[in-house]
Design a protein around this nucleic acid. Structure first.
Lengths: 275, 275
DNA sequence: CGTAGGCTTGATTCTTGTCAACCGCGGTGG
DNA sequence: CCACCGCGGTTGACAAGAATCAAGCCTACG
């Protein structure tokens, strides 16, 4: 059921080769063995939700942070007229409630698309991580930054791309993100979304999404059958999308950033040798 | 020229009554005199940019954080086809480059609409603030949270509201935000935007924005002349927008949050009594 | 075997975009 | 001081893209 991680950095087996959070973060900067163990510990907890259920609902104040280990979820808002806008798709390795901090009421809900396994993470564990391990803290902040960039990217899509561009862009993004956590099989991804859900994310109607997908199939850009998406012509699809994957910041940290983090780590060791 | 702050908490004159950043943050939680002085110091620096200039451009790595003291700016992206998508309007009290942290290349630009005065803030000053003053750090993170909520709200607008709804929503938002930093005069705001700029933010064409505004005027919802926006029928406008200002989180911190911050402050004092 | 949810398709409507022209104002240079 | 210029706003006619309405189909599932 779970596809094998195929694109990890090198093929030595290390702790967390199957931990998508680790895979994602190590795209940003190399993690030490102890970092990995810490992350593994962080997501040791386990809770499961069936498909189509809210994990946290609008108006609630969330009691814990969680990491998604398996399955797919969405951030969404319901509108007074009954409409739904999906803001983000969460996949394995993503964190819910990024802003650990100032938990007022949620202004949106997080719900499952498929059955989902999550690791509830106590707030304190995250706070400790932020305070105690500058390298992981930086990696986590980088991940938050990436998520924010994705929000901006969605704004661009909704504001300035036509239906074809939006669909193409979303497919490209989902492929890239799955690849980044080792959940793709070449140019194939599991895509457990209904066309209605795609439509709710793209600001379109299901009917129109259907027509756009049909067009893509006719132009041999993709196949999409039984929840499996194959990107046949990745160049072509990116052209339709005007896709630029820089915003996913898969490039990793710059020299400067690495140095700054190393400096923080040194300072950390000197300040609190005991911890 | 600058309108008097009218909605502050109480009317005693305190440091920074004219500092929009302070006004904004103190909506979240009360700031001590020393907090205010620290913030005043933070934005003591001064730089000016003429209208229609980039403060930071896509692809650059920003050399400093900045706070906007006067004028209006935008976060935007240029598309290959020449289009522009405006993601955010920045007004007095807003911070550019919220993520002080991991400065890789910017994935969007920040440019001025009007002539602008900014306070460049050294990275270290921000980092020190985060490390040394938990209360201000929390307030700043709250502000970042608010900005992220605004991004999500824009996604909802672009995805699920029609042209009228989008325009109405944006006007409501801009009014609220100006009021929050004491830059409104009742239901009147300076709105130095061209219809083209509105269109670029709303995913519409200038022509259509014009027609929508005309409709609003005919229905006596607003007047908009010589860059001055009057909201005549705030209820009506909100109805058109399905506006809910909760996402601006003007409510302030909860009891819980205040207690958590107070606890952090105590710990701070014990840990590093010297700083 | 029957049913429901989701996919597919066609016909039609409506919102928004496109193209084009004109106006009015503010600024600039003669 | 006046004429010109250019940008931004305004308006109309028309085109296009997406929504809506409606029906039929497939397939997983009970």
């Amino acid at each position: 059921m779970r596809t094998a991680p195929s694109l990890g950095a090198g093929s030595k087996t290390q702790a967390g080769d199957d931990n998508p959070l680790i895979l994602k973060l190590s795209r940003f900067l190399p993690l030490t063995e102890s970092d990995r163990q810490m992350l593994d510990g962080l997501i040791a907890g386990e809770a499961a939700y069936p498909a189509d259920t809210d994990i946290v609902s609008e108006g609630m104040v969330p009691r814990f942070v969680f990491a998604l280990k398996e399955g797919m979820a969405i951030r969404y808002r319901l509108l007074p007229d009954g409409g739904r806008q999906i803001m983000t798709f969460l996949i394995a390795g993503d964190l819910g409630d990024t802003h650990v901090s100032l938990l007022e009421a949620m202004d949106h809900s997080i719900g499952t698309i498929t059955p989902v396994r999550v690791a509830p993470i106590p707030r304190d564990a995250i706070l400790a991580l932020f305070a105690g391990t500058p390298r992981l803290a930086a990696a986590l902040r980088w991940s938050a930054l990436q998520e924010e960039a994705m929000l901006r990217e969605r704004i661009v899509s909704l504001g300035r791309r036509d239906a074809r561009g939006r669909v193409a862009y979303l497919l490209c993004e989902l492929l890239c993100r799955h690849q980044a956590v080792g959940l793709s099989d070449g140019a194939m991804v599991r895509l457990p979304l209904t066309q209605t859900e795609l439509a709710d994310a793209l600001g379109l109607t299901p009917v129109h999404v259907n027509r756009v997908l049909k067009g893509f199939r006719e132009r041999k850009l993709i196949t999409l059958d039984r929840k499996k998406l194959h990107i046949l012509d990745s160049e072509g699809l990116r052209a339709v999308a005007a896709f630029n994957h820089d915003y996913l910041r898969l490039g990793g940290a710059s020299e400067d950033t690495r140095h700054a983090i190393a400096a923080l780590e040194r300072r950390q060791r000197e300040d609190r040798p005991a911890l």
